[in-house]
């Protein structure tokens, strides 16, 4: 990802900055100029909880350019509690333990690096929600 593109999308990738449509009330992520649900243009900013569940997943054995060194890794569609689906990697979990419906939470991680001295791209990944122990 080019440096300007990286910079432009940083708030979405670091903090899931999203929008709520003033007309239909639906949450929109990633942000758009026009609501995909009702085609109106007025929205206000919101930040998502980062909580959701696995909608679908796959293990990538043939990674695209820039991701080869990380293969195999698990990609998922995550259904966020606020409504939108996002495409993201799962982390801190064995591929064999992933299930559809599994609760997950957003974490910020390194996504890739452009060569040894290139920029490092950070962004969201999702991990299983840590179980709270009632000590």
């Amino acid at each position: 990802m080019s440096i300007p593109r990286n910079w432009r999308t940083r708030q979405q990738r670091y903090s899931l900055k999203a929008e709520v449509c003033d007309n239909c009330g639906k949450t929109i992520f990633p942000p758009r100029d026009v609501c995909p649900h009702c085609a109106r243009e007025r929205q206000h900013w919101t930040t998502l909880s980062g909580l959701g569940e696995v909608y679908s997943f796959t293990t990538m054995y043939n990674a695209p350019t820039g991701f080869e060194e990380y293969a195999p890794y698990t990609m998922a569609l995550v259904k966020l509690n606020e409504g939108p689906l996002v495409t993201a990697q799962l982390t801190d979990v064995d591929a064999g333990e992933v299930r559809i419906g599994m609760p997950v939470e957003m974490v910020t991680r390194k996504l890739m690096q452009d060569g040894d001295e290139g920029q490092i791209l950070y962004g969201y990944k999702f991990r299983p929600v840590l179980q709270r122990t009632s000590a």
């Binding site: 695209p64 990697q89 996504l111 890739m112």
Partner: peptide
């Protein structure tokens, strides 16, 4: 979508 699918590592 390059910005929100491919940049995450999906093919």
């Amino acid at each position: 979508d390059q910005e929100y699918e491919v940049s995450q590592g999906i093919s």
